[in-house]
Design a protein around this nucleic acid. Structure first.
Lengths: 94, 94
DNA sequence: ATGATTGTTCGGTATTTGGCGAATAAACGA
DNA sequence: TCGTTTATTCGCCAAATACCGAACAATCAT
């Protein structure tokens, strides 16, 4: 979970996640959305992938990235735990 | 919100938040919970304070830190929006 | 005012991070 | 196989980060 929070600490990476939420995208498509070198974006993809927030699949010469939704579920839980206090029974919202 | 995510990217700072969830604590009490120099912890307090996650109040010679719960509400909203695919706007509590 | 207590700020260093271009890798079509 | 396309990996560098001890600041008690 530490990797997840660290990954979210960068605005570029959060924007990548936001874009991927609309649709799966190739590395090239994503790279065009930023004024950064492809190699730089590739580095961001690595961070997000190691954090488990995205997954990649090769498709021909392209690589398609998509969100890993279960990682987001864990993130939501972790944040709710921060708010409610760890170990306590989760308060159901009425 | 960027400051918030960056603040959460460090394990020491997340632990500080976890401790403060149990009870308000002075800078000294918090510092004793870590194998780090007081000056280092003080730096972490600053990051958390600028992110709006904690607030401080001087009490005699001590400084008492406590969580800023409304910042956590915003964090929860932001993360839920990430999961639900909402862009920047979000927010639709009454 | 002096000293003790509690924290922060300052100056410095080592590590990590984010950025780039060049080199490399993998898949495809001709 | 050769060239093209698409991405990643590899040095390299500048900026940011985390850390420390020492100096400074603020408060209180004597």
């Amino acid at each position: 979970m530490n990797e997840v929070f660290r990954a979210l600490g960068d605005p570029t990476r959060r924007e990548i996640l936001r874009l991927l939420h609309r649709r799966d995208m190739t590395a090239g498509e994503l790279a065009e959305a930023f004024p950064l070198a492809k190699s730089t974006l590739s580095g961001h993809f690595n961070v997000l992938r190691h954090a488990g927030l995205i997954v990649s699949e090769r498709r021909g010469t392209s690589i398609v990235y998509s969100l890993n939704l279960s990682a987001f579920e864990e993130l939501v839980s972790a944040v709710l735990d921060m708010r409610n206090g760890r170990g306590r029974p989760g308060r159901r919202k009425s």
